[in-house]
């Protein structure tokens, strides 16, 4: 069993994989939380009668706040989806250490001295036994947290869209009344 941990570079790759898994989950959770808070705050600012201020801040927030910016527009549209590149990048980064470990192990098995090959094989198997569940669990958590923050951002968007729809309907109603064609009463049909 000691042989399985005798390869220092394989151990480094396993440690890197664990750190990446933990780091990616924490990073995505923190970014998602912050994004949801920002979106909620912008929605509050806009509902508080300062839509221009919210629009400016949303524009400054970059692509990640694009759904909020869309929701603040005068023409109500369905809530946009938050860019998923962050989660995709995090998930891709999660798979880098296992792939590196496999490449390193495969290379060792083909190039190392015959006496060192059992150690290389044992290190590869043990490393995969640690990294596979960790990486896949982390990937699932990253997707979960990303979807959750997307859901929270969508909630803020819907609050803003409701306001926009109300404004639009009011404007349409006022325009119809101005033309003398008030909104039709369905009960009269």
């Amino acid at each position: 069993m000691q042989l399985a941990f005798s390869d220092p570079l394989a151990l480094v790759l396993v440690a890197l994989g664990l750190a990446t898994a933990l780091g990616a989950v924490i990073f995505v959770a923190a970014r998602g939380r912050k994004l949801a808070d920002t979106a909620a705050q912008l929605a509050y600012v806009a509902m508080d009668g300062r839509p221009e201020e919210a629009r400016v801040e949303a524009r400054q927030g970059g692509r990640r706040l694009a759904p909020i910016l869309d929701a603040l527009s005068s023409d109500p549209t369905p809530p946009g989806t938050r860019p998923w590149l962050l989660e995709a990048a995090a998930v891709a980064a999660l798979f880098v250490p296992p792939v590196l470990l496999v490449l390193y192990g495969w290379g060792s098995l083909h190039t190392a001295e015959p006496a060192a090959r059992p150690g290389a094989a044992a290190a590869l198997f043990m490393g995969l036994a640690v990294l596979l569940p960790t990486t896949l669990s982390s990937a699932a958590l990253v997707v979960l947290l990303g979807r959750r923050s997307a859901r929270l951002v969508r909630g803020s968007c819907v609050s803003l869209i409701a306001r926009g729809v109300r404004t639009t309907v009011d404007a349409e109603t006022a325009e119809a009344l101005r033309r003398g064609q008030g909104p039709r009463d369905p009960r009269g049909e």
Binding site: L3, A4, A122, F125, A129, P133
Partner: peptide, 15 residues
Amino acid sequence: VLALVQTAEGVANGF
């Protein structure tokens, strides 16, 4: 995962 651990043990101890 269990099979990977057992194989690693088998390789290390066997050799």
